[in-house]
Design a protein around this nucleic acid. Structure first.
Length: 556
RNA sequence: GUCCCAGUAGCUCAGUUGGAUAGAGCAACGGCCUUCUAAGCCGUGUGUCGGGAGUUCGAAUCUCUCCUGGGACGCCA
């Protein structure tokens, strides 16, 4: 446990004892209250609202209650130097901040692992994200999902959850048939023969390239095959080709998966059929109009859903039920799916299906990534699936860079629409927030280079840390100490964008300190103490950026 | 028509699960480099928190209702 957390817990403990000692309520009756760091510095280092929370039980006005609590508070035990009552009844605590320097030692010792907690208690969580059909390039929406999902996994991992990252490959449905037909058409076109693209075909430029590639390498070899044989070849070749490209794109985006789960494998193991049978056994399946239905309305869905169509094939839902059942069978306690906004209507039926199979619907959390609008030159960039004119994730990485793209996508809460300003992201100027944070890291690296040039060896001495008492130094120490709890909160709230805010604030404090004080001075002890502080900030910046998938450059 | 998400400064967005005078970046203006990187710092101001009603010591946050924008409502995936 971090020193900051220990100190905070101690204050909470002392408050509770003071409340009981004041004789207002028994310890079991103490209501929920918060001990928070006030926004306003003039409100102390910590503040609590307990007096207001007690008004109803104690039947006194909050200021009187606060007086009574303060009168019974053991200040020494809570390492509090001063207490004030303010506003409607807040109790403000002013701390003896010397304990804060302890965080430096903790950070230097922990290094890359600073920020790690066991808040998640090793809970087995699976996060499924991206899961784009292997039928074309990853686009903007996928990039957002990838950046958000990966950052979320990193945060969960750091907060002590046992995280597994998974990509579901939809390689069994109609879309893969359309892929084969599209490649076939492009191949014949590349050979100079007429063939129309299928109605639901994929019009991306990548498919055109595939056609050319096959025509150049193998000439009319496939044109001479039987249509059936040709279809199978194009289907498998196209799927592998698309997957390879997706994996490459994601790797370049610094996103990796523990498992790539194939839809086809569900069929091969008979799991789809098995799930339908299980649902039938549980009494949630019926036949009507020549189709097989799931009684999903039983669990809050708008209408019942078809599992097996009139033509005997499955709907998209059916293998997906089998897939989720399979996830549970692998022992995951919590499933998190990250879906695009266009799939949100699908959530109730999936949850209903899970309940039909006897699962608690709360074990499945679906996070929706809202739409991304791209702006360039002040205008919204138009996308068209039909013509294949869409900005791909690859385009973004090449034009904007991985660091800026990932930072921008993680910067915002994922359930809000995002306007992505390409001109801003691409600009190498102070308008660009990602540089601001990276620059803080590079600046510290530069200080250490400078120290080395001057023949100073970094030898942190804990005895000197008490000299870090300036306002900027205390700000930094407090913020550094809050990092582990910040990660735990981000994990709990499934909100990695909180880390972006945290790291931006830390960078801001560093820049502010940098302009106010000098690290390398004639005073050896102070120099060492400040170098140690800088090392702690550098480590924390790097750890936070790593969670976001953004690099921490040595130089800029 | 039903459901989901959103509506906060000129723009893009935060808002620590109901707290004190609602914040940040960008944009605007004025200062700061013979000293560790000026991609930086310091200062200046801007709000009917979409409207209305309610809940209470206290509401951007919770409830209801209405308005606006986006999305979803297939035996497509």
């Amino acid at each position: 446990m971090s020193i900051v957390e220990q100190t905070k817990n101690k204050i909470i403990e002392e408050i509770k004892q003071a409340v009981v000692a004041s004789g207002m309520v028994e310890s079991e009756q103490i209501p929920d209250f918060v001990l928070e760091i006030p926004k306003e510095k003039s409100h102390g280092d910590y503040a609590t609202n307990i007096a207001m929370q007690l008004t109803r039980i104690a039947r006194k006005n909050p200021r009187q209650i606060a007086e009574s609590i303060v009168g019974h508070l053991n200040k020494e035990a809570a390492s509090v130097s001063k207490v004030e009552i303010a506003g409607p009844g807040f109790i403000n605590f002013y701390m003896d901040n010397s304990y804060l320097t302890g965080v430096i030692g903790q950070i230097l010792e922990a290094g890359e692992t600073y920020g790690k907690t066991n808040a998640g208690g090793g809970k087995k969580v699976q996060v499924e994200f991206v899961s784009a059909n292997p039928t074309g390039d990853l686009h903007l929406g996928h990039a957002r999902g990838a950046a958000f999902g990966d950052a979320l996994c990193n945060v969960l991992d750091m907060a002590g959850y046992d995280v597994s990252r998974e990509y579901y490959i939809n390689d069994a449905g109609n879309q893969i048939v359309n892929l084969a037909r599209s490649i076939e058409a492009r191949y014949f076109q590349a050979l100079g023969r007429d063939m129309e693209m299928p109605e639901d075909g994929y019009f991306g430029k990548d498919i055109i390239e595939f056609g050319k590639e096959l025509a150049e390498r193998h000439g009319d070899k496939y044109a001479n095959m039987s249509p059936e044989e040709r279809f199978v070849f194009f289907r498998n070749w196209g799927r592998d080709k698309e997957l390879e490209k997706i994996k490459k794109d994601l790797a370049d985006f610094r996103v990796y998966f523990d498992d790539w789960f194939s839809e086809t494998s569900l069929y091969e193991q008979g799991l789809v059929e098995q799930s339908v049978e299980e649902l039938r056994k549980r009494g949630y399946v019926y036949e009507q109009d020549g189709a097989t239905w799931l009684r999903s309305t039983e669990f809050g869905d708008d209408k019942d859903r078809v599992l097996v169509k009139q033509d005997g094939t499955y709907t998209y839902l059916t293998p997906d039920i089998a897939y989720h059942e399979n996830k549970f069978s692998r022992g995951f306690e919590q499933l998190i799916n990250i879906w695009g906004a266009d799939h949100h209507g699908y959530i109730p039926r999936m949850k209903a299906a899970m309940q039909c199979l006897g699962h608690n619907p709360e074990q499945l959390v679906v996070l929706i990534n809202q739409m991304v609008s791209l702006y360039q030159g002040g205008e919204k960039v138009k996308m068209s699936k039909r013509t294949g004119k869409a900005v791909t994730m690859r385009d973004l990485m090449e034009e904007v860079g991985t660091d800026a793209t990932r930072y921008f996508f993680t910067m915002r809460s994922q359930d809000a629409h995002l306007d992505f300003d390409m001109d801003l992201a691409v600009s190498k100027s102070n308008e660009n927030p990602v540089f601001y944070v990276q620059y803080a890291h590079a600046r510290i690296c530069s200080i250490f280079r400078q120290a080395e040039e001057q023949g100073i060896t970094f030898q942190p001495d804990k005895g000197e840390f008490i000299r870090l008492t300036s306002e900027k130094e205390v700000d930094l120490l407090k913020h550094l100490g809050a990092f582990p709890q910040e990660i735990a909160a981000a994990a709990e709230m499934l909100a990695p964008h909180r880390i972006v805010r945290y790291v931006h604030e830390l960078a801001s404090m560093l820049h502010s300190f940098y302009n106010a004080e000098r690290v390398i001075t004639e005073d050896e002890g102070l120099t060492q103490a400040r170098l140690a502080l800088m090392k702690a900030v550098q480590t924390t910046l790097a750890n936070a950026l790593r969670l976001l998938g953004v690099s921490a450059p040595q130089k800029m």
